[in-house]
Simulated scan of single mutants.
Amino acid sequence: MRQAPPGRTGPAGMTQPSTVPAGAPCRTTGPPQVDMGRVVGRDDLLLVTLDTLRFDVAQELAAAGRIPHLAGRLPGGRWERRHAPGSFTWASHQAIFAGFLPTPAGAGPHPRLFAARFAGSETTADGTFVYDTPDLVSGLAAAGYRTVCIGGVGFFNRQGPLGSVLPGLFQESHWEPAFGVASPTSFESQVDRAAEVVAALPAEQRLFLFVNVSALHQPNWFHLPGATREAGDSRESHAAALEYVDRHMGRLFAAAGSRRRCFAIVCSDHGTAYGEDGYTGHRLGHEVVWTVPYGQFFLPGPDGAR
């Protein structure tokens, strides 16, 4: 299913660093690692949420050389340990699209890359991209970006009112059963669609591409050789699903960086439990759910610009 609602209109996007109004001091430990005021308006943007990916599994596979396409882009080849803004997809993505990405696990406060303008923000810094719209997606649209969603799990399937809210933030959204959790080839199908979207854009058009990767979400048993439906999902099949995703991640990175330099964020929205302390699944307060992997980096454009 392809849907491309009319483009949004709104106030001019902020493409330079901005601070909150006078009288609303920002108490942060320093600027964000990347000056998003310089990035927004110049580079394309890619946000990938590896839905349900656990930090411990992601870190183990990176250290063991089992996810070379992802680890090869991560600073130092390692994931950053962060805390999820929610314990399940809906809550976490509502926060992410409001500018609240997973938070570094160390003591803060931590300056944010993106933030809506509001008085009293303690995590808006000089390098934060500040927008005057209700959410990050419309803020980037106001700054001249084409905003595109490649959905994965059910909250992005547009098959009912609830599944239409998050993709409805975007000017263009894509979902079909081949992208969903029940498909053993979901991510490669999503990457195919993403490549089509990128190729169809005018060269001068900036792009904000969001991909919600469904492959790690249950069911994932079919990614582990020898596993059965009856045995169900496990930590091992979760790891096998991440290896599957990594095999196709290089194509997504290549497409995202095919037009110009692209700033990429790859992270999980929450983890999931496989029997730890008697818990199974997510939407609960356990360390394996709230601790998630995070990475951000630039994909050089065709001219090699970094």
Rank of each mutant, 00 (worst) to 15 (best):
H93Y: 08
S268M: 00
V213S: 13
V266L: 13
E196V: 12
V48Y: 06
P167V: 05
A98Y: 03
L47T: 07
L299K: 04
T128R: 04
P111Q: 05
F129G: 04
W79S: 10
G144P: 11
L136H: 03
H217C: 08
G7C: 12
L74G: 06
D126V: 09
P167R: 03
P167S: 03
A105N: 09
S189L: 02
P134D: 11
L166W: 05
C267P: 03
T29D: 10
G232K: 01
V39A: 11
V153R: 02
Y294M: 05
F55E: 04
S173M: 03
Q159F: 11
R261E: 13
R283H: 12
E60F: 06
E122Q: 15
I96M: 14
H270W: 00
G139E: 06
G13A: 11
R229Y: 08
W221D: 03
F88V: 01
G275K: 07
Q205T: 14
P302C: 02
A64L: 12
V191R: 03
R81G: 01
L113C: 11
H282I: 00
A141P: 07
L45I: 15
R42K: 15
R78M: 12
T89M: 03
D135Q: 08
C149H: 13
R38P: 06
V57A: 15
A227G: 09
A195L: 04
Y131K: 04
V148Q: 04
G86V: 01
S183C: 12
M36H: 07
F97C: 04
L53E: 01
A254M: 01
S189M: 08
I67T: 10
H110F: 11
L50H: 08
R2T: 06
S164H: 07
G65M: 07
A305V: 12
A239Y: 00
G163L: 13
R112Q: 14
Q94L: 10
R259I: 04
V289S: 00
D135N: 15
L45P: 10
P202I: 09
P300A: 02
A215Y: 01
L162A: 15
A141Y: 11
W175D: 06
P202M: 11
A203S: 13
G295F: 08
F55I: 04
A64G: 14
Q296V: 00
D246P: 03
A203C: 05
A64Q: 15
E176Q: 14
R66A: 14
S237D: 01
V213N: 11
M36G: 06
P25Q: 00
R261M: 09
S183V: 02
S87N: 11
S183Q: 12
S18Y: 05
G271H: 00
M249F: 15
E188K: 11
T272R: 01
H217S: 12
A194T: 07
D126C: 04
P85H: 07
G99Q: 02
V57L: 08
G144Y: 06
F298S: 12
A12T: 13
S92N: 02
R27F: 14
T280W: 05
C267Y: 04
L162S: 15
P11L: 10
F263D: 02
F155Y: 14
P32V: 04
A4Y: 10
A71T: 11
P25A: 01
G285L: 14
L53F: 00
L101M: 15
R259A: 04
